[in-house]
Design a protein around this nucleic acid. Structure first.
Length: 152
DNA sequence: GCCAACGTTGGC
DNA sequence: GCCAACGTTGGC
């Protein structure tokens, strides 16, 4: 079971939305590297929910991969901001996964705290200017994160 | 294939 | 609003 970090803006889709809905299609990914990471996800993988463009930004919850290898429907929807006219139904360019809510942590682990605890090598999200919305988290870093988020 | 221009993400 | 980082596009 691998661990990931996935960003979303709470004003657009935050942990509150996911807790209410139970599961969600993680659509709208339009970056090849992020897409390729999604393609390597397996059912049961866990993902830290990171609130980006928030005050403050940081990790707020935990999710589980429920379904993999789904075609992202928004690429074919002209009304969607994620519409991609170059993508054809017979050869979809973008795909996505379905994620399920696991838990919301008692306190947000802020980016500032993450920078105190981790180097950019251990947790790339702390690197200045990191724009990738999906990042792998090493097993060692995942365990340290869980220890910080769920003190005994 | 190179590179300049441009666009997007996201912290501050 | 500014800026760092970096991906994408298009001319050549």
């Amino acid at each position: 079971m691998a661990h990931w970090l996935m960003k979303s803006e709470p004003d657009v889709y935050g942990i509150d939305h996911l807790e209410r809905e139970g599961t969600t299609l993680w659509d709208g990914i339009r970056n090849y590297q992020a897409r390729n990471y999604m393609r390597t996800m397996a059912i049961g993988d866990r993902a830290f929910f990171y609130h980006s463009n928030a005050k403050p930004p940081g990790i707020i919850g935990l999710m589980q991969v429920v379904t993999t290898g789904l075609v992202d429907p928004s690429q074919f929807d002209p009304a969607s901001k994620y519409f991609d006219r170059a993508s054809k139904p017979e050869a979809p360019r973008w795909d996505c996964v379905r994620l399920g809510f696991l838990e919301r942590f008692d306190a947000l682990l802020s980016l500032e705290q993450l920078r105190q605890e981790f180097s950019a090598d251990d947790l790339p999200v702390v690197r200045q200017g990191n724009r990738l919305s999906i990042l792998p988290v090493s097993e060692a870093s995942a365990q340290r994160l869980l220890a910080l988020l769920k003190p005994a």
